[in-house]
């Protein structure tokens, strides 16, 4: 059978999700943000909640996420997405509200917001992209940077005596009673992408049940900040990031 015979509309098994706009993403080649955007778009489309979903953009590389997924968005000040999501969800309880935040946003300047949103048990979804570095501003050390990892502000590697230890936010908030579902996923292989998608879907379904905050951490890469090509960055993530941030479900109150 010839390739031209296979390329027919009825044979399509995978295509760009309908909710992803035609704008060219500004992310670097191989950035995990694009994959996570795609998964969120697919989940919203499959659940049929495009009209009732409100996303909250962070400050960071994903600050322009509103250009790429065709839903309603709000733009929060740095780290304040959970606070904005709290207000949005309380004023519009029938909407699906989610925040999309990186580690420089959520784990650093926004630590107070996320801890208190979890503690209050807001019925929102938090998507947390953890790549262990500040990507947008030029690869500075983030709270989640691994010990010994070289960044532009720790050129000899992160030294715990000088820079402290990495923060494992998902494990920290699992001790708070307001959280319903906490999981850590990645998007470096096809299998991992499928698991991450079902985790994001579960998080949106839990937010409909009004049982607390759902938190999906995606361990991801920043190949520009890590100074690697995208394929090597994925390997480095598996070898190093997964030791400190192991993949799997951390908390599920319905289990």
């Amino acid at each position: 059978m010839d390739t031209a015979d296979i390329k027919k509309p009825e044979n399509i098994v995978y295509r760009k999700p309908a909710l992803i706009t035609d704008n060219v993403m500004h992310y670097c080649p191989g950035c995990s943000h694009g994959v996570v955007h795609k998964l969120i778009a697919e989940v919203i489309d499959e659940m049929g909640i495009q009209e009732s979903t409100i996303g909250i953009c962070p400050v960071g590389c994903s600050v322009f996420a509103y250009n790429y997924i065709d839903i309603d968005w709000e733009e929060a000040a740095h780290g304040r997405a959970p606070a904005l999501a709290t207000a949005t969800k309380r004023l519009c309880p029938d909407k699906h509200v989610f925040t999309y935040q990186g580690d420089g946003d959520l784990a650093s300047i926004g630590t107070a917001e996320i801890i208190h949103a979890c503690s209050r048990g807001e019925n929102i979804v938090v998507i947390f992209i953890n790549n262990g570095i500040y990507g947008m501003t030029g690869g500075q050390m983030a709270p989640t940077t691994l010990i010994g990892m070289k960044t532009s502000t720790t050129p000899y590697g992160r030294d715990p005596k000088l820079n402290g230890f990495p923060m494992v936010i998902a494990d920290m908030i699992s001790h708070l009673d307001g959280t319903a579902f906490i999981t850590r996923q990645s998007v470096h292989t096809a299998a991992a992408v499928r698991k991450a998608k079902s985790a994001i879907r579960k998080a949106f379904e839990y937010s409909e049940k009004n049982i607390g905050l759902s938190f999906v951490e995606i361990v991801s890469t920043c190949n520009s900040g890590w100074k690697m090509n995208p394929v090597d960055a994925n390997k480095w993530m598996v070898e190093n990031m997964f030791r400190k941030y192991p993949i799997g479900d951390i908390k599920d109150i319905l289990k």
Binding site: I6, I12, P29, V35, K38
Partner: peptide, 27 residues
């Protein structure tokens, strides 16, 4: 770009593509 004719239409390439540029067909 696609090379050869060994493709089985598993969608692995499209799933990991950050820019959603791959459409997969399978028969």
């Amino acid at each position: 770009e696609m090379v050869g004719d060994a493709c089985i239409g598993c969608s692995a390439c499209a799933l990991v593509c950050p820019d959603s540029v791959i459409t997969v067909y399978r028969v």
